[in-house]
Amino acid sequence: MRMLHTMLRVTDLEKSLAFYQDVLGMKLLRQEDFPGGRFTLAFVGYGEEADHTVLELTYNWDTHEYDMGNAYGHIAIEVDDAYAACDAVRAKGQKVIREAGPMQHGTTVIAFVEDPDGYKIEFIQKS
C-alpha cells in the first residue's frame, strides 16, 4: 500500500492552481472536467503520481463557499530554509500565518502559510 493523494475542495480553481504552482512550486500533473457532475479535478505535486503523493484539487462548479470545520489540520512540506520559503510566499503576495522559527516545544524550525481557501500549509525545515 501507499498513499496516493489528499483531496482539497477549492472555490476558485485558477487561484488555487496559481498558488500551488507559482507560490509552492508544484506542477500541474493532470486536469479533467466532468460536465455531467459539474466539477473539475486537478492534480498537483512535486513529482509524478506513480512515485509521489500528490494533491487533488476538486472544484465543484456550483459551490462558492465551504465550511472548514474544526477537524482539518494542515499539509506539511519539507523545505531547505523555512525563513526563505516564507519570504518567497510573502513576495508573491500570499499569507504567512506563522513566521519561521523553532517549534514551541522543540528545535525543529517550522512556519505556516495559507492557500487562497484558507488551508494551512506547514513548512518544516530540513534538519
Rank of each mutant, 00 (worst) to 15 (best):
Q31P: 00
T63P: 00
Q21F: 00
Y72V: 02
F19W: 13
K27T: 14
L4K: 14
Q94E: 15
G101P: 01
K27I: 04
G118S: 09
R38V: 03
D115Y: 08
D80M: 03
G47D: 15
V44C: 06
A50M: 05
Y72F: 15
A71G: 11
M1D: 11
T58D: 02
M7G: 13
A50V: 06
G47N: 10
A111K: 02
V44L: 07
C86P: 00
Y66M: 02
P35W: 12
F43Q: 07
V79A: 03
R90E: 15
Q94G: 01
C86E: 03
V10W: 03
A50P: 00
E32D: 14
A100Q: 05
L41T: 07
G37Y: 14
A84R: 14
M7C: 14
K95W: 04
G47V: 08
A111M: 04
T11R: 09
E56T: 04
G25M: 11
V109Y: 04
A50C: 01
L29P: 04
V89Y: 01
D12S: 14
R38G: 02
I77F: 15
V113I: 15
I75F: 15
L28G: 06
E114Q: 15
T108R: 14
Q94W: 12
G101K: 06
L24Q: 08
V79C: 05
F34M: 10
K15M: 12
S16E: 10
L57T: 07
V23G: 05
A100S: 08
Y59G: 01
L55P: 01
G45Q: 13
A42N: 03
H105T: 12
H74V: 06
L8S: 08
R30N: 11
G36N: 14
L28F: 11
D80V: 08
M3H: 10
E78F: 07
D81Y: 02
F123H: 05
V79D: 01
L8M: 14
Q104L: 13
G47Y: 10
F123A: 06
R2E: 09
V113Y: 07
I75E: 04
M68V: 02
I97N: 04
T40E: 09
H64Y: 09
F43K: 05
D117F: 09
G25T: 10
L41Q: 08
Q31H: 05
L17S: 13
E48T: 11
F112R: 03
D67Y: 07
Q31A: 12
H5T: 09
I75H: 11
G45A: 13
L55H: 03
E14W: 01
V44Y: 08
T53N: 05
